[in-house]
């Protein structure tokens, strides 16, 4: 059996939300960045969050991934109350994330990037006298992730030598390599060209069935192609949350985007 296949665990999963936020609020010395946000996402679903700059999307992502502590509210992952957990604990509980600003290991190879991520799931990281070669599971796990993202040809390249689009894929690969239940994707298409974007959308379509995905994205084509649920934020609050088609025609949302049609 290979360790990445955790299907024996997954069959016990309750049907329902894998991640749920209830009344999340974050205040920074007086300024409320996120206010009473509630949302949830179940396995196989993509819940997209959009909104103008400064709407609090990034803060929301940082709250959900444990990088910020909420001032108020609750976060539940797979039925466990995880409010106040840090990013390390969140990751270990199965919340993987990608970052808006590429956050990988630039001086290491793609394979080594993934190795670090995969190894985090195995209980051997404190082992300091045996060679990594004694643990082939790590590398085979990495190879599986790399294959899944069709990055095989880049395995031995240094991450810093890759194109921007490829680095964005490594960003996703690192999240996937921790075998998460929940994927938080913070603008995966940031800075990508048209073709790269299409590739990334195809990639997300390919893998979506295994995760509960919360997606923050500015690219509306991508959002409408991927999302099952669409939440619109403004000034830290949710102004609309529904099926994409419904949200698209909402007058409040149209107004928030200052009259510009959001499917433009």
């Amino acid at each position: 059996m290979d360790w990445l296949d955790l299907s024996f665990l997954k069959k016990d999963l309750k049907v329902g939300a894998l991640i749920e936020a209830r009344g999340l609020t974050k205040k920074f010395s007086g300024l409320t960045a996120v206010s009473k946000v509630s949302l949830s996402c179940e396995r196989g679903h993509i819940h997209a969050v959009i909104g103008p700059n400064g709407a609090g999307k990034s803060t929301l992502m940082n709250l959900l991934s444990g990088e910020l502590r909420p001032t108020e509210g609750k976060i539940v992952v797979d039925g466990v109350d995880v409010t106040g957990y840090g990013s390390t604990k969140m990751s270990l509980l199965g919340v993987g994330r990608s970052y808006q600003r590429t956050n990988i290991y630039p001086s290491l190879s793609v394979l080594e990037n993934c190795n670090i991520a995969v190894q985090s799931r195995l209980d051997m990281s404190m082992q300091f006298m045996r060679s990594v070669n004694a643990y082939p599971d790590v590398e085979s796990g990495s190879r599986r992730v790399i294959e899944r993202l069709q990055l095989d040809s880049l395995s031995y390249k240094k991450a810093s030598e890759l194109s921007h689009g490829e680095q964005r894929q490594i960003e996703i690969a690192l999240a996937l390599a921790t075998d998460p239940k929940v994927l938080l994707l913070d603008e995966p298409l940031a800075g990508m060209g048209a073709e790269e974007s299409l590739n990334m959308i195809a990639l997300l379509q390919r893998i979506r069935s295994d995760f509960a995905v919360i997606l923050v994205e500015h690219d509306m084509d991508a959002v409408f192609a991927l999302a099952d649920t669409l939440t619109v934020m403004q000034n830290g609050e949710i102004i609309e949350s529904d099926k994409p088609a419904v949200v698209r025609s909402s007058p409040r949302v149209q107004e928030a985007y200052l009259g510009t049609s959001i499917d433009a």
Binding site: S65, Y105, S125, S131
Partner: peptide, 28 residues
Amino acid sequence: AIIHSPFGRVLAGICVNEHRTKALGYNT
């Protein structure tokens, strides 16, 4: 030996990008 061990791999991760290493589930 330390550098080429699983522990050394985590050290390399911390050296290059501690923030990400933390977010990947390591108590750095």
